[in-house]
Nucleic acid binder design. Structure first.
Lengths: 101, 101
DNA sequence: CAGGATCCCTACGGATACTG
DNA sequence: CAGTATCCGTAGGGATCCTG
């Protein structure tokens, strides 16, 4: 009788600022915290929060290297890739909406 | 290099409280304002706002009858039905995520 | 460099009361 | 009945400063 609770949660996270962009940007390869921030124009506060959420949902992987200065790289998990595919599907759906008038 | 602007907008609207529920509830047939409010447990303020947004995006149709007391019925447009299908797809995707571990 | 802490402003949404 | 108007608390997110 409605979206499942899990689906609603995913939907909400994906709609937050920068979430879909992070997944999209990580389509291939991994990237560092600061690189993502620069490309996506997100404040470190928001970026950290978003990455934490996406990590908690199992969509991105976090790998920290014990170096100075510190380096942390983020990449998509298989689950994250599945969700990214879904986002791409959304793009196609929205395109077809133009035709459905 | 990311979700289209339109897709992001759709995503955001769908994530707001009650949006997907309204679409889902209108899967078949139409319903009145107060019925939707009762079923979805939304305050009139939020329900009105949500319906206005969904109407503006062309997902729901609004038909007002010149009666006393007033009666207004909402139903899904073809576009709305397409979006509803997409939401159902989301449910399936989230299910498959359980397997992708 | 990768964040956490703080301050602050805006958006979202419930409760209540009111009107055509 | 179908909303709108108002009040108000909570969440989201930018800017800035700080630290391991």
């Amino acid at each position: 009788m409605g979206l499942s609770k899990g689906a609603r949660k995913v939907l909400k996270v994906l709609a937050r600022r920068g979430a879909s962009e992070v997944l999209w940007a990580r389509g291939r390869g991994s990237a560092r915290f600061s690189d993502l921030g620069a490309v996506l124009r997100l404040s470190p506060r928001t970026l950290a929060e978003r990455l934490r959420e996406l990590h908690l949902m199992g969509f991105v992987d976090r790998r920290a290297y014990a170096e100075v200065p510190p380096r942390v790289e983020y990449s998509l998990t298989p689950r994250g890739k599945r969700v990214l595919e879904f986002l791409m599907e959304l793009d196609r759906v929205v395109e077809t909406l133009e035709e459905v008038r």
